[in-house]
Design a binder for these strands. Structure first.
Length: 557
RNA sequence: CUGCCCGUAGCUCAACUGGAUAGAGCACCAGCCUUCUAAGCUGGGGGUUACAGGUUCGAUUCCUGUCGGGCAGGCCA
């Protein structure tokens, strides 16, 4: 992977020239890293250790050879050989100054790369069936999915956000009978209330609107209630549209937009499910047993073969799933990423097996999955488990209303997806540095406040000399800013938006430390302008990073 | 019982994907607190990276096993 770090690129170039002489015929990967220990310099390289074995030479001697051939650069203050054969680079402060005008010139584009080269990627997330409001787990998916899409967009991918749902299956039938029961005056617990039913208060709301003959509109549908509680089909259609609209409001409150809503039922009406089954049968990947049709998923690494067509004639859920992913592939998305809870991990092997078995040349390992664990909510030291509207779970909208869209987004993205997350409502509301969102947003607001106090035009900083920026806090901040492009490239590649959150809190920490140590609006004009230029670069980077997470950057707090 | 994921300071989490003395924030302790935004600032203690082996110059990272936790294992989705 080529470096996306502006200063690393320089080191790589210098070392590359030296290696052309020292080891012209030995391939080696030039990994430049930032040592944890500051006394080891700004960058270090382990090539000498890598080359020691193939060249049969002492790594420290090799390092010396490389240094002898290293072209001089005014930005490199000195080099040294350390430890087992590390080559350490200590840079001049001027090496870091270049990052400031670069960020100011690139603005919102700072950090972008072109690794994606315009390729299409489809990210599927949330994909909640219309049976109730979105819960906090969907919130985690929405935050992850949207951030991931933003990250991919910065890396030059053509991103498509998709929401897949089922408007027909067993769950929807249960929804219809639940609403019907409410429409006929029954309540959960009454004699005659269906055994399998949704019991949240929202079911009553749907029944009320249905009886009132209201009209609801959601993504691709608009339904007017017939008001006839004996018409189960009408009840179903109305309930689905109502809850899709409800979820649209949840998503709007969370500022997540989808490009497309894909219906599972369309896979049946278009014949895609049937065609998929026929292909699998024709390819000899299936067999009949106990009156059912089985797919040999074990040929592709699954634990056991899976039933595709039940003895009652219906398909199991993974068949339309396979058909859906074939459609994704045929729609031109050679890369697809699905975001789901870890409780669905069992389906991965069988969907992938199905995609291989159809023999359409779909890449192995298609699609990618990003799995996340559950979210628990704590408030006042106690776990919150229910909400008024949904009854049995905390909704995403509850969480947003208790705190804020920004806090929910930031918090849900702050941990690796595969670790359980405990959402602390009280912390999200705290207006102090314990609250990481506040901490980052506050850094931005502080910079804005300084500029307001200064009263000049940011554009007038373009020609400012950065030579006065030599204090440790200033160097640390510039080094941090230079890392940003690499951080977001890695975050995209590793499907790890949490890296952006960690970066931003660290960057904010560097900024606050500098702010506490130095006054920006000093009398000396050269120092003042240099510091303002750096502060502006910092502000731009914070804005860019927060934008990826879908978190706002307020100018005042 | 089997598969996948996880196990790092008292707590919540990092560690640039194999680098040098494992880092932050809470909490704790000690000082400070007349400032562009204030709800604080500066420093300090704290670790056998669950455990035992293995791979190599070098392991939190890769491999094997053990222990502990989560999620799955349906002709449910």
């Amino acid at each position: 992977m080529s470096s996306t770090h502006p200063i690393k690129d320089l080191i790589v170039r210098l070392l590359g020239e030296a290696l052309d002489t020292v080891a012209p015929d030995t391939p080696v990967s030039l990994d430049i890293e930032r040592p944890k220990n500051a006394t080891h310099g700004d960058f270090s390289c382990n090539v000498a250790m890598q080359l020691a074995r193939p060249l049969k030479k002492n790594p420290r001697e090799l390092a010396q050879h490389i240094l002898n051939e290293l072209p001089a650069s005014p930005l490199v203050a000195r080099t040294e050989i350390a430890g087992a054969g590390f080559i350490n680079f200590h840079l001049a402060p001027a090496a870091w100054h270049g990052i400031v005008p670069r960020i100011r010139a690139e603005g919102a584009a700072y950090g972008r790369g072109d690794a994606g080269q315009g390729q299409r990627v489809l990210v599927e997330f949330v994909s909640a069936n219309p049976t109730g409001p979105l819960h906090v787990g969907h919130g985690r998916q929405a935050a992850l999915g949207d951030a991931l899409c933003n990250l991919f967009a910065t890396q030059g991918w053509a991103v498509h956000r998709e929401f897949y749902y089922n408007d027909a299956g067993v769950q929807i039938a249960t929804l219809a009978t639940s609403v019907q029961a409410r429409a006929k005056g029954l309540k959960p617990g009454d004699a005659g209330w269906p055994e399998a039913a949704y019991n949240g208060e929202y079911i009553g709301d749907i029944a009320t609107d249905f009886l009132a003959g209201k009209t609801v509109r959601a993504d691709d549908r608009e339904v007017t209630a017939s008001g006839n509680a004996d018409d189960l089909d009408a009840l179903r259609e109305f309930a689905v549209a109502y809850l899709r609209h409800e979820q649209d409001l949840d998503l709007k409150a969370f500022a997540v937009k989808f490009d497309h809503f894909y219906l599972e039922s369309s896979l049946y009406t278009s014949g895609r499910v049937e065609a998929t089954v026929n292909t699998l049968v024709a390819n000899g990947k299936t067999y009949e047993h106990d009156g059912a049709l089985w797919l040999r998923t074990t040929d592709y690494g699954d634990d056991k073969d899976r039933v595709m067509k039940k003895s009652d004639g219906g398909y199991t859920y993974f068949v339309p799933d396979v058909a859906y992913h074939i459609a994704k592939w045929e729609r031109g998305y050679t890369r697809a990423i699905n975001i789901q809870g870890t409780d669905h991990h069992g389906t991965i092997a069988r969907v992938r097996a199905g995609l291989q078995a159809v023999g359409l040349g779909i890449a192995e390992g298609y699609p990618d999955y990003l799995l996340h664990t559950m979210v628990r909510v704590m408030r006042g030291g106690e776990e919150v488990k229910i909400s008024k509207r949904a009854g049995s779970y905390v909704t995403l909208r509850d969480l947003i209303e208790w705190t804020s869209k920004d806090a929910v987004r930031f918090f849900l993205l702050s941990r690796k997806p595969d670790t359980e997350y405990v959402f602390d409502v009280d912390l999200a509301l705290a207006k102090n540095n314990d609250n990481p969102v506040y901490y980052v947003q506050y850094a931005h607001a502080r910079i804005c406040r300084v500029f307001e106090e200064w009263g000049g035009q940011p554009a007038s900083l373009a020609d400012a000399s950065l030579a006065p920026l030599t204090a440790p806090h200033e160097l640390a901040l510039m080094q941090r800013l230079a890392e940003y492009p690499e951080v977001i490239a890695t975050a995209a590649q590793e499907l790890s938006p949490h890296l952006v959150v960690h970066y931003l809190t660290t960057l904010a920490g560097d900024f606050h430390a500098w702010y506490n140590a130095e006054k920006f609006l000093v009398d000396d004009p050269a120092t003042r302008l240099a510091r303002l230029a750096l502060a502006e670069a910092c502000r731009i980077t914070i804005v860019n990073g927060l934008a990826l997470l879908g978190v706002s950057a307020p100018e005042t707090m």
